[in-house]
Design a protein around this nucleic acid. Structure first.
Length: 894
RNA sequence: GGGCGCUUAGCUCAGCGGGAGAGCGCUGCCCUUACAAGGCAGAGGUCGAUGGUUCGAAUCCAUCAGCGCCCACCA
């Protein structure tokens, strides 16, 4: 799809919308993003953290995807066999809840519908909305291999889940047990520890008394969840607590149902806290559960699945929800005079459901499935310690390690319907077995009326297999052989434990190797759910709206610019995206200029002896840019790369590089024009390639107009070594003269501005040579200086030159004289020079003091001392010049 | 309760041992044939506080203050 339009047809403003759609479709059609498993190239692979199938792309995805696409596109240009594998997650709870809500609007409860009909509804929902996020990824420009698109409930991935489960089951790593679980009363399912978010709430701590049943007094206990006292089955004190020595073995009487609760001793009780006595509610508190196990206290489950009071509690509380029950218990204790103390507010952390945000109840929900993590965690810790998995930034490695160290068994059964059903069957004969294929009968006793476990697996159970299940595991596919372990995983830190750590454990266990060699962890964009952050920027930023308005490149640039690995919070504003849009437009217009003078084809650099100093300068700056960008990307610092490109393109290439070529381009000889055009096109073409991973569309759009190849997607990544031979020489040759030229031009422009001298009136400039060699400094850039500063001529005068009617500027200590005639008011300039003299003198004094310091001379490295000497020399030169100028001015003015 | 991070220009952040930087915002001038989504010039900071190490500290160390995040079964 070579672009046929000529430069003249390039509008003055870049228009992203049409270009993006056209280019993306063409890229996919040409198969540029498709990776081959049979390859001689070195593989590079990223698997996309699968977004929820029914989700919409939010700004957090946009960031995550931008980083991945930058790495992917660059790897492709570097010649790797590059695979970015996309896919979506069925997101068990999240999706089920959405569909349930949908049904609720129609007045239907999922239980009425039945499991199969309900699942049909979910699948229909998935078909309807499941593709949306894929389309949105395309709008962003994600260069995924769409031929490999996966979904966690695909046939292949479902089989991977079963194989993994069965293998772990048979290996004793998956077991079934009855323990307290984190129960969400709203979603009515168990959750793993990782799915519980602890948050501070302003609670209350209520202390009340249990009367001893022998009438010899009472025992005070405290709680933040007063309603749980209905399920108390004992009181515990520390075994060594003197205060309760006599109470041990006695009983207290429950004030509402008269049950007698034993007082037991357990070391888990902290005698220093509160009264030193703890009410024990084994069925509703993990610590209490453990105490009960050790001391033999009974379990009393007082909650129903929806967190209302069960029938075991006294009638007056029955059916109340937990909060009403709390109030009611409070009232009744007060009536009975058993309340001792109320502390309110009493801030403490309470677990909340990560999906619906209800308060979690520790609850006995019958038997649940668990993964025993003891044997999994050590290999995973070792892999990080030995560097087989590298975290970027590496401080996450420590968090990872400590999390694994404290990890407890993982509850994987969910009381949901949407998900991978647990592949375990039970037969009336009491046998239990796991199978990859649906069995017809019990393998032990042959009975046919077997029943499958009703629960489904935690979504993260399938997610943990993602880096290899997507590549074909458990089959030994070519994809798996080529691309596993993958190169890098890119993700936010919020799912480091939920997901990343588990992939490492399962990859090591099931395949014997880590799933990825690097984990690039980025910060969080202030997100769409309006989550905290006191300094909220206000409204949610919708990536798609931004793409429509400013273009995908603009959004990508804004995100890339923030994506520094060290940053945890990545604030994004619409102004930032606007800046991205402006940048794209800047590149576009630089290209417009060049395309007016460059005919297309592969640019060729003129031989070095034909290069103007300005061209050598530009080439050496370009060389620095390649090194910076490559270095930044190697270190995973997308931000650094984006900022470096912006600086080079805008402040160096456009502001000076292009401006300095205009003379040759518009007024030069035929050869000068052609050489200048080639140099500019050469730098532009390579710069586009450097920028392409971040801003794929505008770079392709321009690159094709340069007619250097089919697509920039397949172009090679610019070599740092390309100018290795010349760049240092160019830099050395041009650096000092360029800085002088730049300062001179700026000073003259400032002078024009301050005194209203219009750009069109040319100036005959004189430079008083104070030091030898100034002519040599001006020479290489003389024509450029004249053009940019609007000078008709530059001449040199002796240093004592004392003509009147001149304004006197100072450039690097050299007096620069601008003829201004008799009517010109020089007072402003005089003031300016005075101020300049003052600062220069202050700096001079500082340098003198430093060089007069013996310790400095003795201990500072020689190059620092040398630098300081040069600085002092320069300042001396400058102050004496300034004094002289002032004298001249005063003489002329008087 | 444990751990991590942040505090630099009005805003958002780079710099992490040797002369305070960027983007946006602000001020002035300019529709100069690449770009007004632009050009040119400019204003603006005792680098959170205190103490220490050092010839030299925004940069290293300690303490403190404020902010944020992660982890955590103290009623």
């Amino acid at each position: 799809m070579a672009v046929e339009s000529s430069p003249a047809e390039m509008p003055t403003q870049y228009e992203p919308a049409a270009a993006e759609r056209r280019l993306y479709g063409w890229w996919v059609e040409r198969g540029f993003f498709h990776a081959r498993a049979r390859t001689d190239r070195v593989p590079f692979c990223i698997v996309l953290p699968p977004p929820n199938v029914t989700g919409r792309l939010h700004i957090g995805h946009a960031l995550d995807h931008t980083i991945q696409d930058v790495l992917t596109r660059r790897a492709r240009m570097q010649g790797f066999e590059t695979l970015w594998l996309p896919g979506t997650d069925h997101a068990g709870i999240a999706t089920q809840v959405v569909v349930e809500r949908q049904l609720a609007k129609e007045g239907i409860d999922r239980r009425e519908l039945g499991r199969e009909a309900f699942l049909e509804r979910v699948w229909r929902w998935k078909e309807q909305y499941g593709g949306e996020i894929v389309e949105q990824m395309k709008a962003l420009g994600d260069s995924c291999d769409w031929e490999r698109l996966r979904f966690t409930m695909d046939e292949g991935l479902s089989r991977a889940v079963r194989v993994a489960f069965v293998r772990m089951y048979e290996d004793g790593l998956v077991y079934r047990g009855e323990r307290l679980v984190n129960w969400c009363p709203t979603d009515q399912t168990a959750l793993s520890d990782s799915e519980v978010e602890h948050e501070e709430v302003e609670g209350e701590l209520v202390t009340f008394r249990y009367p001893l049943s022998d009438g010899s007094g009472d025992v005070a206990v405290a709680t933040t969840r007063l309603e749980t006292m209905l399920g108390d089955t004992g009181i515990a004190v520390h075994p060594d607590d003197e205060r309760y020595r006599d109470a041990l073995g006695k009983r207290v009487r429950h004030p509402f149902d008269g049950r007698e609760l034993p007082i037991v001793a357990d070391p888990a009780v902290d005698p220093a806290f509160g009264t030193g006595a703890v009410k024990v509610t084994p069925a509703h508190d993990p610590t209490d559960f453990d105490i009960a196990e050790r001391t033999g206290l009974e379990l009393m489950n007082i909650l129903r699945a929806d967190a209302t009071m069960a029938d075991v509690v006294p009638e007056e509380f029955r059916g109340l929800d937990r909060y009403s029950a709390r109030t009611r218990v409070h009232e009744r204790l007060k009536e009975l005079g058993l309340l001792v103390k109320e502390e309110r507010p009493y801030p403490h952390a309470v677990g909340h459901c990560y999906r619906c945000h209800s308060e979690i109840e520790p609850w006995l929900s019958g038997k649940q499935w668990f993964v025993a993590v003891e044997r999994l965690k050590e290999p995973a810790r070792m892999a990080a310690k030995e560097g087989r998995v590298r975290f970027i930034p590496d401080r996450w490695a420590r968090n990872y390690d400590e999390w694994l160290e404290g990890l407890r068994d993982w509850n994987i059964s969910r009381q949901l319907w949407w998900g991978h059903r647990i592949p375990v069957w039970y037969c009336p004969g009491g046998h239990e077995f796991a199978a990859v294929q649906d069995p017809e009968a019990c393998p032990q006793c042959g009975q046919a009326d077997i029943e499958q476990d009703p629960d489904v697996l935690d979504t993260w159970f399938s997610s943990q297999l993602w880096p290899f299940s997507t590549l074909g595991w458990p089959d030994e596919t070519e994809d798996l052989a080529t691309f596993y372990p993958t190169t890098v995983l890119v993700t936010g830190y919020e799912i480091l434990y939920l997901w990343v750590a588990r992939m490492i454990m399962s990859g090591l266990y099931l395949l014997g190797d880590v799933p990825f060699r690097n984990v690039l962890i980025h910060g969080l964009v202030r997100d769409a759910r309006g989550r905290k952050m006191s300094k909220s920027l206000g409204n949610v930023i919708d990536p798609l709206g931004m793409i429509e308005r400013y273009g995908a490149d603009a959004l990508r640039y804004a995100l890339a610019r923030m994506a520094s690995p060290d940053q945890q919070n990545l604030p994004l504003s619409e102004e930032g995206i606007e800046a991205g849009r402006n940048f794209a437009n800047k590149v576009w217009n630089a290209a417009r200029l060049i395309l007016r003078v460059y005919r297309g084809g592969v640019p060729e650099l003129p031989p070095p002896e034909r290069l103007a100093a300005a061209q050598k300068w530009l080439l050496s700056r370009y060389h620095g840019c390649v090194a910076d960008v490559s270095g930044a990307l190697d270190a995973g610092d997308i931000s650094e790369a984006a900022v470096g490109l912006h600086r080079f393109i805008w402040s160096e290439f456009c502001d000076w590089g292009l401006e300095m070529e205009k003379g040759r381009l518009y007024e030069g000889t035929e050869r000068e024009r052609s050489d200048a055009a080639n140099v500019l096109a050469w730098v532009l073409e390579r710069t586009l390639r450097l920028l392409h991973p971040i801003m794929p569309f505008v770079t392709e759009e321009i690159w094709q107009r340069l007619r250097v190849g089919e697509s920039i997607v397949l172009a090679s990544w610019p070599e740092v070594g390309e100018l290795e031979e010349w760049a240092p020489r160019f830099a050395e040759e041009t650096e000092l003269p360029f800085v002088f030229a730049q300062e001179l031009v700026t000073e003259v422009r400032r002078f024009r501005g301050d005194h209203g001298v219009p750009p069109k009136s040319t100036i005959e400039l004189r430079i008083a040579e104070r030091a030898p060699g100034r002519r040599g400094l001006v020479g290489p850039f003389e024509t450029e200086i004249r053009r940019l500063a609007g000078l008709s001529s530059i001449s040199f005068v002796e240093k004592g030159f004392a003509g009147s009617g001149y304004a006197r500027l100072l450039v690097q200590g050299d007096p620069v004289l601008i003829p201004v005639g008799d009517l010109f008011d020089l007072r402003a300039e005089t003031t300016r020079l005075r101020e300049a003299l003052e600062t220069a003198r202050a700096e001079e004094a500082r340098a003198e003091a430093k060089l007069g310091n013996e310790a400095f001379l003795a201990k500072a490295p020689p190059e620092v001392v040398l630098k300081e000497r040069q600085k002092l020399e320069r300042l001396e030169h400058e102050t004496s010049s300034l004094r002289e100028q002032l004298e001249q001015l005063e003489a002329a003015g008087s």
